[in-house]
Design a protein around this nucleic acid. Structure first.
Lengths: 215, 215
DNA sequence: ATTATAATCGAACATTTGTTCTGTGTCAAG
DNA sequence: CTTGACACAGAACAAATGTTCGATTATAAT
């Protein structure tokens, strides 16, 4: 192996990482050649074969843009704080309806996205992602992550993950006990509730947190 | 949009996630067609255009295997256990509008409320709690915790924490640049926007996450 | 009933991409 | 000096892939 070969392979690896970071998919052989100043697609292929042989990348034969970098086991950089928890400066209240006087970005108090949000039974919580708009009036929209606290009985009107064994299905609704049956009520005025015999319903957990990503 | 269209788009999304998970690169249009039982590459392309329009995926025109999913599973591996981070069993999707078949409480996959939710700039985030209903149509209600990514410029229509130095106030609104002035737009049909000279506005950060406690 | 648009689809075509072929130059071993 | 293997390279080709074209059917609005 010549020095130039080794240098070029390192250049290719560096380029691959940068390209995949920036684009979310891998480059073509021609992209790589342009990046390192080599016109020959067969030479690039030769180099990639070498990287494959060294277990640095994988390729699927004849499949465009199928290069993958074999990553070392290095964990995500930059976990904050000694305890690994994420701390965010907390600046207090922001009034969405009226501007409020706060100093810009001066927070010293922090909020921790950790177990303290949930109290003692945090270890038992489970999460589901919402599909659909039936709970829109509870400000729970499609794609939201909902965190539930396992509970077999909840108060009338609370929102819960409800398992319907006869249907083999789980749904998120407001739950109302009405004698021998249960009303599962969407929080969406355009949708009708549906009714199930109380014996055919298992409450799995009640909603304790809703998380929505906004991009 | 027909029910079949909607169903097929969901199938495509599910297939994309599974394929990318399994392979480390995205499928071709023909791969997708095979998976959902549609032979027509132009129809698959039509569906992908729809998913792109809904901001669920991105594509590069004319570039093979360049599909990226915008809303990735938040099941990205995180730091587990001993460091005090919270792991919650993740059971997948729950469709709020239609019951779906899932086994009750059998999750082995977990979701981490940690830095993985935010990506690289997590250390710079700040949080505010919302007061008032002016952003109700963006499903942000009174009492919600909103997490912001510091950013001095955002795209038209995005939601931001806006500092108004002349008033000594911060507000949460959708921001629209209109020549020499900025329109601060509530997401509530019963409320009027207000206008501020562009020189009198400081964008502090844009919304990246919304968290709501439900008691 | 009519019209426009959306959804659907197969076939053909254009483009992107990777592989194969052929050749030259370098280097180490015998 | 000869030989074989490796590194390098351009061109041609084959395969993979996405787009365009033209058509039919379904749906919604008027």
């Amino acid at each position: 192996m010549t020095a130039q070969l080794e240098q070029r392979q390192q250049q290719i690896l560096d380029f691959l990482k940068g390209y995949i970071d920036a684009h979310g998919f891998s480059p073509s052989v021609r992209d790589i050649g342009k990046a390192i100043g080599v016109q020959s697609t067969s030479l690039i292929s030769y180099y990639l074969d070498g990287l494959f042989a060294q277990n640095l990348i994988t390729r699927e034969k004849g499949v465009p843009r199928s290069i993958r970098i074999i990553e070392e086991d290095s964990s995500a950089p930059g976990i904050l704080g000694q305890d690994g928890l994420l701390s965010i400066p907390y600046l207090g209240y922001i009034v969405a309806s009226e501007p409020i006087p706060v100093e810009p970005l001066s927070g010293e108090e922090t909020i921790e996205l950790n177990q303290a949000l949930f109290g003692r039974e945090a270890g038992k919580l489970f999460a589901l992602t919402v599909r659909g708009d039936s709970m829109i009036d509870a400000l729970i929209g499609d794609g939201d992550t909902v965190i539930f606290k396992p509970q077999q009985y909840i108060e009338n009107g609370e929102m819960a993950a409800v398992w319907l064994p006869d249907r083999g299905e789980t749904t998120l609704k407001k739950v109302y006990y009405e004698g021998p049956r249960v009303r599962l009520q969407p929080a969406n005025p355009s949708m009708e509730p549906f009714y199930v015999p109380a014996t055919d319903v298992q409450i799995q957990g009640k909603v304790v947190l809703v998380i929505r990503r906004v991009s």
